[in-house]
Amino acid sequence: MKCSKCGGYAVITLHYSQTHLCRKHFMQMFERKFKRTVREFGMIKKGEKIAVGLSGGKDSTVLLHLLYKLSKKHPFELIALIVDEGTGEYRKKLIENAKRECNILGISFKIVSYADFVGFTLNDAVGKNKQVNPCSLCGVIRRRLLNKAAKEAGADKIAIGHNLDDAVQTVFMNLMRNEPLRLLRYNEPLVNSPEFVQRIRPLIRIPEKEIAVYALLNGINTGESECPYAQYSLRKEIKHKVNEIEEKYPGTKLKIFSSFLQMEKLMRQSVSDKDFVLSKCKKCGELTSSDVCMLCRMLDSISL
């Protein structure tokens, strides 16, 4: 297959745009898309300190490399936060990879663990509480821990490796759970508070497969494998279904994401700050929309 731009050997076909790209033109397209997304959403300002949530998998590792490259042209500070959930060998391998990549790029990193933060590992909690959905628990702890670590590091923003596929899955998950308002905070915070470090998602317009191709072409190490708790994940089921639809109707993911952005705009016009009043959690003092925050409620339901 020949590159649609230069006639060279195509390393990928983008079915959604019916184009075939060689290594050089794929890299150009990919990096341009990343930079355009950063600009489109005003994600990074000069001089800011950006904390990358680094898992050691392909998405966050590629993000680290892209941000590193960008920081050389548009000065901003970069650090990495590596989260250790305590999922045995799976996480150990990824952490080693994350550390190695940080060392290659000369980026300082900090490892923060569930064990230190909540007093148990994910393996401990799931092993002793069969009723607990590991993905829900993991997501809530991770969000809070990353926010805490980013605040302590003095970061202005947290950059996470969410890609187009993740965004589409999140849209579906929130609709399936009848929580459409959660989508409103996907791209920008609903409530501006110094307690919350804003999250940015510079890979949001890039399909997951293209991130893998970029990693392979650039020799970026990714210790990717499947999370041992993946079978409990609603996200995984949605991921496979969406990929089947994408294969049959190329461009579906991009169209869903574009629809989401339009809906988000309309929905934001119909809500005001008053609709999102936050108070302090009665147990931990963190800001929450209910009396007791989700993390405290989850921790109460776990016996160790």
Partner: peptide, 23 residues
């Protein structure tokens, strides 16, 4: 690394690499 529209012939060595995982 090749396009998935590339034609495969008998003498080729083909590797399929899973890059998208669950979770």
């Amino acid at each position: 690394l090749s396009s998935d529209l590339e034609e495969i012939i008998d003498s080729d060595e083909v590797e399929i690499i899973k890059v998208v995982f669950g979770g």
